[in-house]
C-alpha cells in the first residue's frame, strides 16, 4: 500500500428523487489499499461502489480515478471502466457465452488483444480461481460460488488498476461464501486496490486495511478494522455492530 491516492471521492452527493442516497461523501483510497464498506441496507454503500465506475452517475461533487476526473458517458468513460474491475452481487456472467468466452471477451473486444494471447491468460486466471476444468461450460451449468469466481477472473482479465466488489457473496449459499472470499483475500494480499461492499465481517477483520461505515447516505466512520470493531466511535456504528455481532 502506497500513499498515492488512486480513487478520490470529494463531497459526492446523489439523490434518487427525494432520497438523499449519498450525502456529502468524501473518501480516498490509496494504491494497494483494501477498503471494506459496511452498513445497514439502504445506507448507500452499493451506490457508492457503483458511482466509482459511473454505473451510477452522481449529482454533485467529484470522483477522481488515478488522477483523472471521471469522464462523461462515451469512449473515455468506457476506457476508464476497462481499468476498474467490477464484481456484482448477481454475478452477471454473459449467459450466452461459455466461461472461457466470458473471461476473454473484454481483452479481445475492448482492448483488441490477440485471442491466442488472451486465451493463455484467461486459462491461467480460471485455474487460479479453481474453474480451469469448467472453461467450456455455460454460466447456468455452474454453482453460484463458481460463477462468482469466474466473474472475478473476468474482471482480472482486463488487468485492472482497482477492483470494486458490490456485495459479492450476498446471493450465495452459505457453503459457497468461503471459496469466493478466499479468492478475494488472496487478491488483497497481492496488493490489489479493492473497494468491497459486504456483510462479511470476518473478511473485513482479516483482509481490510480500513473499514468504512455508512448510514443514511453518510460516511459515518472510517478506521482500521481492529479499531473499528473494538471501539466504534459513533452510536450508529455501535448499534449496527451490536445487531450483527450478538448472534
Amino acid at each position: 500500500m502506497s500513499d498515492e491516492a488512486l480513487i478520490v471521492l470529494d463531497k459526492v452527493n446523489k439523490w434518487f428523487g427525494p432520497l438523499h442516497v449519498l450525502d456529502n461523501v468524501s473518501l480516498s483510497v490509496a494504491k494497494g489499499e483494501v477498503v471494506v464498506v459496511i452498513g445497514p441496507s439502504g445506507s448507500g454503500k452499493s451506490t457508492l461502489c457503483r458511482s466509482i465506475n459511473r454505473l451510477e452517475p452522481i449529482n454533485d461533487g467529484t470522483i477522481t480515478f488515478d488522477g483523472q476526473p471521471l469522464p462523461a458517458e462515451g469512449r473515455p468513460l468506457a476506457r476508464l471502466r476497462s481499468e476498474v474491475g467490477m464484481v456484482f452481487q448477481s454475478f452477471n456472467l454473459f449467459a450466452h457465452k461459455t466461461i472461457l468466452q466470458n473471461v476473454m471477451l473484454g481483452p479481445t473486444k475492448v482492448r483488441k488483444e490477440k485471442p491466442a494471447v488472451v486465451r493463455d491468460r484467461a486459462m491461467s486466471l480460471l485455474d487460479r480461481v479453481g474453474i480451469g476444468n469448467q472453461a467450456e461450460k455455460y454460466p447456468a451449468q455452474l454453482s453460484g460460488g463458481q460463477q462468482q469466481r469466474v466473474a472475478i477472473a473476468r474482471a482480472l482479465a482486463m488487468q485492472p488498476k482497482a477492483m470494486l466488489f458490490d456485495e459479492p457473496t450476498s446471493a450465495l449459499d452459505p457453503e459457497m461464501v468461503g471459496e469466493v472470499l478466499e479468492v478475494m483475500t488472496s487478491l488483497a494480499k497481492e496488493g490489489m486496490t479493492m473497494v468491497v461492499v459486504t456483510h462479511e465481517m470476518g473478511f473485513a477483520r482479516h483482509a481490510a486495511n480500513r473499514v468504512v461505515f455508512m448510514a443514511d447516505g453518510q460516511l459515518v466512520e472510517s478506521a482500521p478494522p481492529a479499531e473499528f470493531f473494538a471501539n466504534p466511535k459513533s452510536d450508529r456504528a455501535k448499534d449496527f455492530l451490536s445487531k450483527i455481532l450478538t448472534h
Binding site: R81, F88, N92, F94, G106, K109, V110
Partner: peptide
C-alpha cells in the same frame, strides 16, 4: 435480458454499440 448483463458489459469497458451487438 436482465439489466445486469448490460451493466457487466459496460463495466468491462464495452461501448454502447459493443454492449448491444455482443451481449
Amino acid at each position: 435480458v436482465p439489466a445486469g448483463q448490460a451493466e457487466a458489459a459496460r463495466a468491462i469497458g464495452m461501448t454502447f454499440r459493443q454492449t448491444l451487438t455482443i451481449v
